[in-house]
Design a binder for these strands. Structure first.
Lengths: 174, 174
DNA sequence: CATTTATGTCAACGTCGCTGACATAAATCG
DNA sequence: CGATTTATGTCAGCGACGTTGACATAAATG
């Protein structure tokens, strides 16, 4: 429960003129590094079984949560070049994890969907991450989770945050 | 201040049987992705001016906070192979940002230090990250920051967390 | 003196970003 | 209708950064 054996000096309470200490900033940066690395390590292992990488997971994730996403829409979320995405998407399609359907309104569009295999593989990838989040959220408690969310949101620029929150809120699944 | 225009449903309060919702888990995972990307984007730009990458920043950061770190110690923190580190460390040394000194007790060791140029460049790299953290910590408030830290800590496995907290607590600088 | 440890280095490989250019099909505009 | 724009795909080439496996050297250690 308590991980504060080595007490971190994160906070610097002086109400309005609330300025984080040098130490708090360094600790925050290092926690971002260590935390993100832990968060991604399990799916990375699974992905390497199949010559996939983290980018494949990201594509599967967002196609999964937003079925019918266009290629342009996915490019926008991932913020990579068309060529980078193509090298990820093509194998996923060839391997039968992602399916493309021609758009009904706009027949230039290739709308993206997960196949059953795609859904299964995506769930296998995200299961360990969900387990990590579940454990962390449980042990940290609802208020800590609120804080976690709040700080990560504020890490983004205004515009990125707007887009990210739109994406997060716009999931078509559960 | 308030970014909750699109209210996220993060928390699932049922006291003891506190289980995060499906939606909360997905949101958490996506925030990790978007947040980390935002966090690294500024230094990434600066690094690309010089044919450096994120790995160079990490090396500079940890050498900066733990001057006199051995190569093995840095390998342990970064958890990469010797060869991966070598390809990062060599240019930093050649470019005069990192200096090696033979260990006094153990003359096989090459202890790592930042040169003045190294300190300056590292500060340039981390400045935008510190600015992000400062803004986020200020706006989110001390309790949110506590929660942020707590959740990220709990994201790690027992062992990794122990090591990370040791590294974080063991900074020889401020 | 033999072994282990700390470090460096070589070759080869794969993922995943990037740029720039070009091609096709479909929508849209004048 | 014809010209332009849009959505997508694809080719060639490059760089960063991770991997494995093998080998070399110098210094510490038993």
């Amino acid at each position: 429960m308590t991980t504060s054996e080595a007490p971190l000096t994160f906070v610097c309470r002086d109400e309005e003129q609330n300025t984080p200490s040098e130490r708090a900033l360094r600790e925050g940066a290092e926690l971002m590094f260590f935390g993100y690395r832990s968060f991604t390590q399990d799916p990375d292992k699974i992905l390497s079984e199949r010559d996939y990488g983290r980018a494949h997971h990201r594509a599967l994730h967002f196609i999964g949560t937003q079925p019918g996403l266009s290629v342009a829409g996915l490019l926008d979320i991932l913020d990579v070049t068309k060529q980078s995405l193509a090298r990820v998407l093509k194998p996923l399609i060839d391997d039968g994890l992602v399916e493309q359907r021609v758009g009904e309104n706009d027949r230039r569009q290739r709308l993206l969907f997960l196949t059953d295999d795609g859904v299964a593989f995506e769930e296998r990838l995200s299961a360990p991450q969900r387990a990590r989040l579940t454990r962390a959220f449980r042990e940290a408690g609802p208020d800590a989770v609120e804080g976690f969310r709040f700080v990560l949101e504020l890490m983004m620029d205004e515009e990125q945050r707007k887009q990210a929150l739109t994406v997060i809120a716009g999931a078509k699944l559960p």
